[in-house]
Structure formats: structure tokens, C-alpha cells
Nucleic acid binder design. Structure first.
Length: 293
DNA sequence: CTAGGATCCTGTCAGC
DNA sequence: TGCTGACAGGATCCTA
């Protein structure tokens, strides 16, 4: 799915367009995508006041003490189409041709009509969801409640403590665990471990404290850079010459690069760790490598 | 308690 | 061309 940097890109982008707009109607095309869809009446007529993010979850606050929680999971996208024909569409999230397509389409799950535009929630695999919460209850939502701090908001010591609760797990599996650190997904886990020069399958127990601290620092650096480069949006999905852009090119060093050379010259490998496709450089990230601190 | 696998769902791509 | 299986940027539930 969109991981933390992509969700942050959505938050920033959408904030520019939909804050202070009124929700004039909500249309649920797929029941599964709107948990408690009988509640969608509660947000009709409300004004959007704020957009927040908790890890990979978005919260859209309204002026009637309700909030919308949106989790994009693997294939969710949010696309805002201004009513004015000239104005450009804002699309971000899982990159696909939906960014450019006529909407709604087959993958459109929920449609929010706003004062001056339409917000589409598309989701190919239907793993994502939207739900209505009391704003005061957002912090008690089960997902948000057990979310660990984001990498920038935790002390290295606390991070190490949480990681070390899983001594037998491969480090990559632990980085994907949102109760250990929030925001990393399959791409940024791989990129973080490449930046830290740690093999993804390394059991936590065989990592030193200083290696764990490097991992935390690299998670911050990798995601900072991804946010700065603008996540996956319509802007770079299709290049001016008509060719398809790949937002991974902007920052990914190993993800999606199996078979290509690393900067060191070795060929990037792909295996399976924690049930997920896992990319790494066999030379830069050796298993059983000891700490060099 | 942790750890690992199956599961939700649709679409695409490689291989036969 | 048509079929089949593998896989896809997530998280939860179930079992051992």
C-alpha cells in the first residue's frame, strides 16, 4: 500500500484542496469499503476542518465532532477532481491508471461530493476502508491505539526495547510490525535495511544495539527523503512525453530492482522474508555480518 | 506471550 | 489464445 510517505503526501496534497469544503453527499458503491455505512449520513453537510495522519491511517476531521478514518491498505487511492474543468486533478496513493481514468470506474468504492469538487476513494483489492468515528474516539480506535511511535518520535532506547521483544524474528518482519514502529511497509523496510547495510533475514537477537540505532536513523532518513520527493502522485505517474513514470525511481535503491546492479556492482537479489517479497544487495547486506561499530 | 501462515479481494503477468 | 499459478506498497485472525 501507500506507506507513511505516500500517505503524508496525500495528506498534504488533499489539505490544499478539501479543507473548509462541505461534504454534500456520500455514495457508497462497495459496502465492504465503508465500515458501518449506515453512519455515512452523519457526515453529510459537515465541513472538513483538518486532515491528520497516524502512521498509514488518515483522519479527516469534520466540524460536527465526527471524523473519517481512511486506511488505504494495499491498493487504496484518493483522487480529488475539482469541478472546474481547467483545474488539475490531485491523485495519490497506490499508483495505477486510475490516476488518469474517467471516474467513477470499476474500482471506485466511495464517492464524496464536496462544494467544489468530488473526492473518489478507489481500491482495487478492497482491503482498504473508511469509517466514521467521533473525533474524541479517534485515539481509541484499535488500530491507532496500538500504533507505535513513528521513527522520528521515538528514542533509540525505546525503539530497541520494542524490537528486542521479537528476538527470533527476522529484522524485516519486526520493522513491518506497526506496534514496533509506525509507518514502514514493504518498500521502506527494504530500503531502510539497505541503507543500514543489514540483511533483512537477520534475526533480531544477532543484531547489536548500535545496529538497531542505525536502522532507526536510516528509517527516518529514507522516509524523509521519500516525503521530500513527493510520494506517488499523478504528477509523475505520466511524464510529459506520455511515457509512464515510476515514483520508485526517485528514491528506491533495492525495491523493485531485482536483477539490476547495486551501486557496488553486485546484482540485487529478491527472496521471501516474513512472507513478503524482499529485495537486498547480497554484497552490501551480508547475513552473519558482525557489527562494525 | 511470540511466531508463522492463511486470509480478505481483484488484477496482471509469466509460463505452458 | 486460454489456462494456471504466483504475486502485489497491509493488517488481522487463527493456530501451535
Amino acid at each position: 500500500m501507500p506507506e507513511l510517505p505516500e500517505v503524508e503526501t496525500i495528506r498534504r496534497g488533499l489539505a490544499k484542496f478539501i479543507i473548509k469544503q462541505k461534504i454534500t453527499s456520500v455514495e457508497v458503491l462497495c459496502e465492504k469499503s465503508f465500515l458501518g455505512s449506515e453512519n455515512c449520513g452523519k457526515i453529510k453537510g459537515a465541513l472538513i476542518t483538518k486532515i491528520r495522519r497516524f502512521g498509514k491511517a488518515l483522519i479527516i476531521d469534520l466540524d460536527n465532532n465526527k471524523s473519517l478514518m481512511i486506511h488505504l491498505r494495499m491498493t487504496g487511492q484518493l483522487i480529488y477532481d475539482p469541478r472546474e474543468h481547467q483545474a488539475e486533478r490531485f491523485a495519490a496513493g497506490h499508483p495505477s491508471d486510475n490516476f488518469l481514468a474517467q471516474l467513477p470506474n470499476k474500482q471506485t468504492r466511495v464517492i464524496f461530493k464536496l462544494d467544489s469538487g468530488t473526492l473518489y476513494f478507489n481500491d482495487q483489492r478492497k482491503f482498504g476502508f473508511i469509517k466514521v468515528l467521533d473525533t474524541s474516539a479517534v485515539k481509541d480506535d484499535p488500530f491507532i491505539k496500538k500504533l507505535a511511535p513513528e521513527p522520528w518520535d521515538t528514542s533509540p532506547e525505546d525503539f530497541c526495547t520494542r524490537v528486542k521483544k521479537h528476538p527470533k524474528s527476522p529484522i524485516k518482519a519486526v520493522l513491518l510490525d506497526q506496534t514496533v514502529v509506525a509507518g514502514l511497509g514493504n518498500i521502506y523496510a527494504d530500503e531502510t535495511l539497505f541503507a543500514a547495510r543489514i540483511h533483512p533475514a537477520t534475526p533480531v537477537a544477532s543484531l547489536t544495539e548500535s545496529q538497531l540505532k542505525v536502522i532507526l536513523a536510516m528509517a527516518c532518513r529514507v522516509m524523509d527523503f521519500a516525503i521530500a520527493s513527493g510520494g506517488s502522485t499523478i504528477k509523475d505517474y505520466k511524464k510529459p512525453d506520455g511515457s509512464k513514470g515510476n515514483y520508485l525511481d526517485k528514491f528506491a535503491r533495492v525495491y523493485g530492482r531485482a536483477g539490476q546492479p547495486c551501486t557496488c556492482g553486485a546484482i540485487i537479489a529478491k527472496t521471501r522474508v516474513a512472507g513478503r517479497g524482499t529485495h537486498f544487495c547480497p554484497k552490501c547486506q551480508r547475513l552473519k555480518e558482525t557489527a562494525n561499530d
